[in-house]
Amino acid sequence: MTAQELPPSYFRHQSLQLPILLGVAHGMVDAASGFLLGRLPHTVPLEQVALLIVAYNMLAFGCQPLFGLVSDRLRCPRLMVWIGLVGLSAAVLLVPQQTELAIALAGLSSAAFHVGGGALSYWATPEQTTGTSLFVAPGVVGLAIGGVLGFGQYEVAAVLAGLLLGVAVAIASVRLPALPDASPTNVIKAPTSEAAQETAVLLLIVAIALGSMVWTGSQLWLLGQAAWIIGTAIAAAVGKLIGGWLAQRWGWRRWTVTALAIAALLLATGNTPLQLLLGMACLQSVVPVTLAATIRLMPQHSATAAGFALGLGILLGGIPVLAGFSLFPQAIAAVIGVLAGAAIALWHGLRPSSLATPRSTTIPHSIAIRADAKQG
């Protein structure tokens, strides 16, 4: 049977295989990172814990654009995914013998994985948020569970390493989507000037940073409350999945601004656990859109774009919180202002490229799922 004779449902199923696997891998990667960070109070003096956590975050988030540049230059996003999975598997086995080395290796490996996975998840379903939502959703749950396992000193290092290597093998068996660098005719160009696109990317990074500030502040506020941390992580994962689905049907701009408005209302006025969880779900529901939109604006530099969305923006938002600027619980009113700023940035940042009403991909499914041996 030729590609033309295959039903559309076949191609839709094929296009989702890679994002689902990458999502599972994302959960494993962040679980391994959380496990390492959770073990720190038991493996190093307490005065070194904060320093190592900061070092990990600087490497894991700050280095993503650098790995993205390398990935785009060499057209090797799957290689970056493999580097991340293999590196994390080695890192979890190094603790507690070489804790500092394990943290450094984990940070660099996480950075490599996120840019490769982010780029591939988008091009599996180009111009849509389906692939990016499947990719980003499991990460936060893995981080929370891994942190609890590490802090509880559960001996699961070998299990985590085995799972990481297993999913690496599974990803190796899946056909890659066609990246724009491999065939310039497949690039979905934005009908805006270069200056407008750069401004839009900057606005998206600002929006991501402001959202990250609220999320990081909430997690520090809940520090030590394992049930709450896991609960908000699950809410965030569900929010990302639902948000990716709703944004694709309702419009990227309309959904993100509406979701942030609801999040601000719930977090600023909520007095019940349900309101907090729903607020966090709405907050995180915009992540698939910001990732897809950043790549959409930088189609030939998709891994670098993923590094901006999943790395640099999140790091910039976390710095004020780590420096002592607290939003929870005493500065709840500031949450409204921060999220209002994020909504304004998204409204203007998503205006170029007709991102308010994303169209279905113009790349034929038979092209989008083809194997390309050069795509790492």
Rank of each mutant, 00 (worst) to 15 (best):
T2C: 00
E5W: 00
E5T: 13
E5R: 14
H13G: 13
S15P: 00
S15H: 09
L18R: 13
G23D: 10
M28I: 12
D30G: 05
A32D: 02
L36F: 03
H42E: 01
L51K: 09
L51G: 12
L51M: 13
L51C: 00
A55G: 12
A55C: 11
F61K: 01
F61T: 06
F61A: 06
C63T: 15
Q64H: 13
F67C: 05
R73P: 00
R75E: 07
R75V: 14
C76T: 15
L79Y: 07
M80N: 11
V81S: 06
V81M: 11
G87I: 08
L88Y: 01
S89Q: 05
A90V: 13
V92D: 02
P96E: 10
Q98L: 14
E100V: 14
I103G: 01
A106Q: 08
S109C: 10
S109Y: 07
F113Y: 15
F113K: 09
G116R: 09
G116M: 10
G118E: 07
W123C: 11
F135C: 09
F135M: 13
P138W: 00
P138T: 15
G139W: 01
G142I: 10
A144P: 05
V148M: 09
F151G: 08
G152W: 14
G152R: 15
E155A: 15
L160V: 02
L163S: 11
L163A: 13
L165Q: 09
V167D: 06
V167H: 01
I171R: 04
S173L: 15
R175S: 14
R175E: 06
P177H: 08
A178Y: 00
A178W: 00
L179T: 11
I188F: 03
K189F: 01
K189Y: 01
T192Q: 13
T192A: 13
S193K: 05
E194S: 14
A195C: 03
A200W: 04
V201L: 03
V201R: 11
L203W: 00
G211I: 02
G211T: 14
M213Y: 01
V214K: 02
Q219H: 09
W221T: 04
L222C: 08
A226D: 13
A227C: 00
T232F: 07
A235M: 07
A236K: 01
A237M: 13
K240V: 13
W245L: 11
W250F: 10
W252P: 05
T256W: 03
A259G: 12
A259R: 07
L260A: 09
A263Y: 02
A264I: 02
L274A: 14
L276Q: 09
M280D: 01
M280I: 15
L283Y: 02
T290L: 09
T290E: 08
A293P: 08
L297V: 09
L297K: 04
A303H: 04
L312N: 05
G313Y: 00
G313M: 06
I314T: 11
F328V: 04
P329G: 02
P329I: 07
Q330S: 12
V335S: 06
A340F: 08
A343R: 10
A343C: 08
I344M: 13
A345I: 08
L350D: 06
P352E: 10
P352W: 08
S353N: 15
S353D: 14
L355V: 05
S360N: 12
S360F: 08
P364E: 01
S366A: 15
I367M: 05
I369E: 03
R370G: 10
R370K: 14
A373Y: 04
A373W: 07
Q375K: 03
